[in-house]
Simulated assay, not measured.
Amino acid sequence: MSLDLTATSIDLTRQLVDIPSVSGDEGPIADLVEAALAGATHLEVIRDGDAIVARTDLGRARRVVIAGHLDTVPINGNVPSHVETDEAGETVLWGRGTTDMKAGVAVQLKLAVELAEPAVDLTWIWYDHEEVAASLNGLGRIARNRPDLLAGDFAILGEPSNGRIEGGCNGTVRVRVTARGVRSHSARAWMGVNAVHGLAPALAKLAAYEPAIVPVDGLDYRESLNAVEIGGGVATNVIPDKAWMLVNYRFAPDKSAAEAIAFLEEFFAGYEVVVDDAADGARPGLDAPLAQEFVRAVGVEAGPKYGWTDVARFAALGVPAVNYGPGDPSLAHKDDERVPVAQITDCEEALRAWLTGAITA
C-alpha cells in the first residue's frame, strides 16, 4: 500500500481516512507518509517517533511552519470513507478523521511535494498522539527534543476552522475541588457533616457565574467555567465525609495558566483546590507581518479559537500561530464526522496561492 500524492486533495483525504490511525497506532500511516515524501528532492525529511518533519532550505528570508496531526479518536463504524450529496446539493466526504484532521493533512501533503520553489522556506510537520494526554503529544515531544525544527516566523496549524482563520486559542485549567465532612450513620445524620451537601455552595456559585468575553488583540474570546464531573459517597446508609468535583476553566489568552489557577483558588476559597491539568493559551499572533499577509491572501476575517490547540506550543516558543483548515470543528470526534469537499479545495487553493505568490521573500 502507498499514498498517491499526485491525486486530488479530496482523493488523498479519502486515502488517509481509510488508513486507521487511532492515537497510539500511527506507525503505519507515518510509514506511508515518510515513504511518499522520499522522492521529493527539495525536502529534507526527518522522523521523530511517529512524527514526520519535511523542510526546505532555499535560503529564504522567512520560514513558515505548517503542521497537522495524523491520529484520530477511535473509529465507530465510520471507516471506510464515503461521499454523499446533502440536502443542499453540497458534496460531502464522510468518515473518521475527515474533519479532525485528515483533510487538512491531505492539503498539506499535496502542497509539500508540489511546492519546490515556495516564496518562503517551509517546515511541514505531521505528528502523532494529538488526541490523547498532552504528555504524549508528538509536537510537544519535538519541542522538547528538537525545538529547532519548530522555529519559524509564523506557523499554521491545520485544525478544522471551516476554512476560516482562527487566531491563537484559549487556555485550559482543570481543578479538583473537594469538600470534607464527618462520617456518621444516616439515621444519626446530626452526628456527622455531609460533604456532598458541602459542595452545594460551590455548585450554586458556578451556576450563577457569567463567564467573561475578553478582547485580546482585536479578537473576542469567550471564556467558560463548568463542573464537568462530580463524585462522593460511601454507602447508602452513611453520611459521606468527602465529595469532589472536577471544574474546567477555559480562559482567554490575556492571562497565563498560573493566573487562571489563582482565580480558581480564590473563586473556591474554603475548599481544597488541586490542579489536575493546565495549559497556557496563545495570543492571536495576528500582528505578525506574515500573519497579516496570510489573512489578506485568504481573504477572510479572522476570529478567535475557543478551544485549546497546539498553536499554544508554537506561541510558547515565540512563534505566532493561527488555526486554518477545512471542516467544521463542532463535528470533530462525532460519529457523523464529515467535511464539504469544496472546503478542502478552497483551503488548498488559498494556501497554494499564498505560498507561491502572495509573499515576496
Rank of each mutant, 00 (worst) to 15 (best):
V22F: 00
G59N: 02
E130W: 05
R141H: 14
T345H: 06
G89K: 02
G49W: 00
G285V: 08
V228G: 06
N78D: 15
E87L: 10
A103K: 07
L150S: 01
F267L: 11
R180G: 00
G181I: 00
P20S: 08
G192C: 09
I359F: 12
Y209N: 14
G181S: 03
D148F: 03
P240C: 06
A200W: 13
D241V: 07
G299Q: 14
D346G: 10
L109A: 08
E90N: 13
T309Y: 09
E26V: 13
A35Q: 15
E272I: 11
A151E: 13
Y306F: 10
P326A: 04
K242F: 07
R222Y: 08
A195W: 11
Q108V: 15
V22R: 07
L219C: 06
A302M: 02
R180V: 05
G39R: 08
L115V: 09
V322S: 02
A279L: 05
V247C: 04
V83M: 03
R176F: 01
N237P: 07
L136W: 15
H129A: 15
T178A: 05
V17L: 09
A88D: 15
G168A: 10
S21T: 07
R313N: 09
R96V: 02
A262D: 14
P160H: 02
K334R: 13
I52L: 07
G299T: 07
L203F: 13
I46K: 08
A179I: 03
V175G: 03
L58H: 12
V175Q: 09
K242V: 11
W190H: 15
D153L: 12
D31N: 10
I46D: 09
A61P: 05
V65I: 14
A200R: 11
S135G: 01
R63Y: 14
E130A: 11
A316M: 04
V273K: 00
I359S: 06
R96E: 02
V193A: 11
V319W: 13
L12I: 00
A187W: 11
S81N: 08
A350S: 10
E293R: 12
A302Y: 01
D121G: 05
L199M: 05
G68V: 08
T72P: 09
A38L: 00
A332F: 04
G77Y: 03
P160N: 08
G59Y: 11
A297C: 12
T99D: 00
E159C: 04
D217L: 02
E34V: 00
I344N: 04
D100Q: 09
V196M: 14
A227N: 04
T123I: 12
P289W: 09
Q343C: 03
I142Y: 06
E114F: 00
A260N: 03
V92H: 01
L3I: 06
E337V: 01
T123N: 10
D277I: 01
V214T: 10
Q292S: 06
V274F: 00
A36D: 06
R62T: 15
M101D: 06
V79Y: 01
A106K: 03
A353S: 15
A282P: 01
R144A: 14
P147H: 01
A61K: 12
A312F: 03
T85E: 12
A315H: 11
D310R: 13
E259V: 05
R62Q: 15
V341R: 02
A51L: 14
Y127P: 10
D18N: 15
A315E: 10
T236E: 09
D86A: 02
L109R: 09
S135L: 12
G192P: 05
H69S: 08
P28H: 08
G285D: 01
A316N: 10
A40H: 06
